[in-house]
Design a protein around this nucleic acid. Structure first.
Lengths: 147, 147
DNA sequence: CGCTGTGATGTTATTTCGTTACAGAGACCG
DNA sequence: CGGTCTCTGTAACGAAATAACATCACAGCG
């Protein structure tokens, strides 16, 4: 840890967190500027000019970023997005609505969903460490366009 | 369609549905006897003696089985399970609790979770076609053992 | 200074997962 | 008969993820 600024020389980096390593900052920068989820290899391709060469470099950065809630993995897509609201993420379970037309992802929190899942865990004895909620469908714009 | 019995000569097949093709019946038979999720390649390995040779044969069968709700894909695992309760599946959204110790999967339905998600969709304009809910953690037995 | 522990990095090769492309066999329908 | 549809078989490929191993930077300590 303790890695100082970690500003991309391309100007990707922002405020988020100051203690990112250079690779982590590069990856987060790419995710923050993308308007759709990116696979690890997509990210790698966009960072070749910044010196990244192997998938593992990207996967390692993504692992740290997701641990800290700065990025999320979409399991049904094998792809990653930048967290839309770090504050909210800290408070509980997030859901993701993935538009299959435009590719955009909406991040949401539903406290009542969370409490119902917690109640189910209590009743069944299952101790949950991580919860994934993903919806596939059409966002408002795409749904109205295609109707 | 209309493929008759589709009984495996190894005795895998059961009641479920009579109109499965031979390959579909083989795959479903393997899934039904497994006590943990299986990847497509796991399934393929166990069906070599039954004549299956290529991944695609398994993926095609899995596609039909999941369409009909006879099997489910666990996105966070890239693996498949036999549906535990086809009746319940027909009625709505299912969740899956995956034990990271023993590998077993519990399938559950939470109508209130479903209604909350539906409400969110209505409010945000998102038209959902498919919903995935997966929990990772420890089942009752494994949680008590490891405490 | 040298030594040591720890975490991030870099590189190669391999494994695991999933799909594309193409061709054949059988059922059903006109 | 020809046309279409679904299921099937085979080979090759592409995408996603990890294993194994070596290196580098740095902080703490004697």
């Amino acid at each position: 840890m303790a890695q100082s600024k970690a500003h991309s020389h391309k100007g990707h980096a922002h405020v988020w967190a100051d203690d990112l390593t250079p690779n982590q900052a590069l990856v987060l920068g790419i995710l923050a500027h993308a308007d759709a989820p990116l696979s690890a290899y997509d990210i790698l391709d966009r960072l070749r000019d910044d010196g990244l060469r192997a998938p593992l470099q990207v996967y390692r950065a993504l692992e740290k970023l997701t641990e800290r809630g700065l990025a999320h993995r979409l399991e049904s897509l094998n792809a990653f997005v930048c967290c839309a609201d770090t504050r909210r993420h800290a408070t509980g379970i997030l859901g993701f609505a993935i538009c299959e037309a435009c590719g955009r992802v909406e991040e949401f929190a539903e406290p009542q969903v969370e409490s119902r899942l917690r109640a189910w865990g209590k009743a069944s004895g299952f101790v949950s460490s991580r919860t994934m909620i993903e919806l596939r469908g059409l966002c408002r714009q795409c749904a109205s366009r295609s109707s």
